[in-house]
Design a protein around this nucleic acid. Structure first.
Length: 569
RNA sequence: UACCCGGUGGUGUAAUGGUAACACAAGGGAUUUUGGUUCCCUCGUUCAAGGUUCGAAUCCUUGCCGGGUAGCCA
């Protein structure tokens, strides 16, 4: 076993202070909360976490860590029609995998349903809320538009006692779904549409994944989130930009209720080139069968990139590198890949593997002889040691590493040309055997120089090309899956009016290679193990592997400077 | 064109009234038993116009451009 799967964390040295930390510093300087800092990560359990969530997780938990504070995990489960324990479980697993810990501070908005109900009653008693019997359509019609004020609901000035009675009967299930709502009495002419008598409670008969059928009325996000933050004594409630217009409402509820006031701060969500980062669209890819599931290695979900072989360290480094701001921006996926290579380069052991095999026969090497060649496991880490790789007369090399008619500057194997077989011998191509009908080269014949064992050149001669190989008899047959971007456009949403974003899906995003070979040291490698196939990229053992057949996912390719040279000619 | 938010190299992020910088990308070179890694170099930036100031990316005004908001979703 030569591969390294350790979890040696690379501490993030980014010391820049983002605008959120600037606000917290200000608050601390002003003596707010006596310097206490508490944040929370509040996912709705209606889908799987993705790289965008990683940004939020790193932010919230990172701030708590930096300020000796705490970060809670809270499920924002106020809409039972979309939520499920399947998502709750996956979310917890993914956060842990990313390397964060919420300790004993696991909460659910549904934990607070009774308290939130009591607060609604309090607002009714204060004349700040009323039961409205307008239908959803009528509410929309009377809300006004972006430029025109709304009109008051005819139920707006109902007596308090009647509101109290009706609201209790809503809770008791006396009215059908959607027939009544509880609304805050604010201002139907407010330029901020969120302040035009927003709905606080709706009647919704759905079995909640935690509270079952205890409730048939559920509070909306707006009438829930701030109060949950308040209950948990969150000092800084960090959310994404689309909630900016909700902040006045967030503050209004807190103020009217007279409870602990957290501060909501908004930041820009993450966009990545060639990537769709929306639960709704990701769900479509899963449901329509474009991918094998939420954990398909092409998905930007945390379980997907985990299966692909991404490391939590690389993801954290990425999140630290992209920073935090309020600017709508799209990060180049190349930066994420850089972070990955940067991490993997230090920790992934090198092994030799051949994706598209080409038979090589060393004519002057004794038949039946096997030599064990010593190979370095990781040139970036001497403590990784060495291993032995069997060498023999018949080998496989990469098809790419042989050209019958080599282009300029091609340093690998070609008729008459000499290359180094890594850790083995220098060989020179003498002739080739072709398939008589297709003309394709099926076998390359070489002679080796016995004086160059280990790849050394005692006479000091220079060989520009060093290629990898496996011994045909000893090599392990494996399957390898290569992945390309899921979308062909940097912005997958960039489609003409009325056209589905899925037209931008890349039909070649998955390539299965079933005829691959790796060196025998990989026998028995565990799913999740990572390694670098020299010159081919970083790979990770897929859970689809069986006891006698390994399946590898290519995590990310290596930087390929030869491709650029060849392209230029 | 109601309100809110934003605008710094190709991309992302710093500089918070005092020399515009870091990373990625791109281009070039050195080293290399991975065309990897590492190292060096190059490229290129404050949306615009006014104003305040000894001094403005930063503060003010106006304009321009981009995003968000009319769920009983979050």
């Amino acid at each position: 076993m030569t591969i390294d799967n350790s979890d040696n964390s690379t501490p993030n040295t980014n010391t820049s202070t983002d605008f959120i930390r600037a606000i917290i510093n200000e608050d601390n300087l002003a003596g707010k909360h006596a310097g206490r800092v508490q944040t929370r990560f509040p996912p709705e359990p209606n889908g799987y976490l993705h790289i965008g969530h990683a940004k939020s997780i790193c932010l919230n938990f990172g701030i708590a860590r930096d300020y000796d504070g705490l970060c809670n995990l809270r499920f924002d489960d106020t809409n039972p029609s979309k939520e499920d324990v399947e998502y709750v479980d996956s979310i917890m697993e993914d956060i842990r995998w990313l390397g964060f810990n919420w300790g004993d501070r696991l909460f659910y908005a549904s934990d607070y349903f009774q308290q939130i109900y009591d607060w609604a009653v309090q607002l009714i008693k204060a004349g700040k809320a009323y039961v409205c019997e307008l239908t959803a359509d009528q509410v929309r019609e009377t809300r006004g538009t972006l430029t025109a004020p709304g009109t008051n609901s005819p139920y707006r000035d109902r007596p308090i006692a009647e509101n109290l009675d009706l609201f209790e009967r809503m809770k008791n299930g006396e009215f059908p779904d959607g027939s009544k709502t509880l609304r805050a009495k604010i201002d139907m002419a407010s330029p901020n549409l969120n302040m035009r008598d927003p709905v606080m409670y709706r009647i919704l008969r759905a079995t909640h994944h935690r509270t079952g059928d205890t409730w048939c009325i559920y509070p909306t996000y707006d009438f829930t989130h701030g109060q949950c933050d308040s209950i948990e004594r969150i000092t800084h409630s960090i959310c994404t930009l689309e909630f900016e217009n909700h902040r006045p409402l967030y503050d209004w509820y807190i103020r009217e209720l007279g409870i602990f006031a957290p501060r909501q701060i908004e930041f820009a969500r993450l966009n990545l080139t060639f990537t769709v980062m929306s639960k709704r669209f990701l769900l479509q890819l899963v449901k329509d069968g474009f991918v094998s599931g939420w954990d398909d290695p092409r998905m930007p979900t945390l379980c997907g990139v985990r299966r692909r072989g991404y490391t939590p360290e690389a993801l954290r480094d990425f999140c630290a590198t992209i920073g935090v701001s309020k600017v709508d921006s799209t990060v180049d996926i190349a930066l994420l890949e850089h972070c990955l290579r940067n991490d993997l380069n230090k920790r992934a052991n090198r092994v030799m593997g051949v994706l598209r095999p080409l038979k090589v026969i060393i004519d002057n090497y004794p038949e039946g002889e096997v030599e064990q060649m010593e190979a370095i496991n990781n040139p970036e880490d001497a403590s990784a040691g060495t291993r032995l790789v069997p060498f023999s007369r018949e080998l496989y090399i990469e098809q790419d590493d042989f050209r019958e008619a080599p282009p300029k500057k091609y340093h690998r194997l070609a008729p008459g040309q000499e290359v180094r077989l890594r850790y083995a011998y220098l060989v020179r191509c003498t002739n080739v055997v072709k398939n008589p009908t297709t003309g394709e080269v099926v076998e390359v014949h070489c002679t080796y120089d016995p004086a160059t064992r280990g790849g050394n050149t005692p006479d000091g001669r220079k060989v520009k090309g060093t290629i990898h190989w496996v011994s045909a008899a000893e090599a392990l047959p494996v399957e390898v899956r290569l992945y390309d971007r899921l979308f062909t456009k940097a912005n997958p949403y960039d489609v003409p009016e009325g056209v589905d974003f899925k037209t931008n899906l890349n039909p070649n995003s998955l390539e299965r290679l079933t005829n691959c070979f790796v060196e025998p040291s990989l026998r028995g490698a565990a799913p999740g193990s990572r390694c670098q196939f020299e010159r081919l990229g970083y790979f990770c053992v897929d859970p689809d592997s069986t006891a006698d057949r390994l399946v590898f996912n290519r995590t990310v390719s290596l930087v390929d400077s030869w491709a650029k040279i060849e392209k230029k000619g």
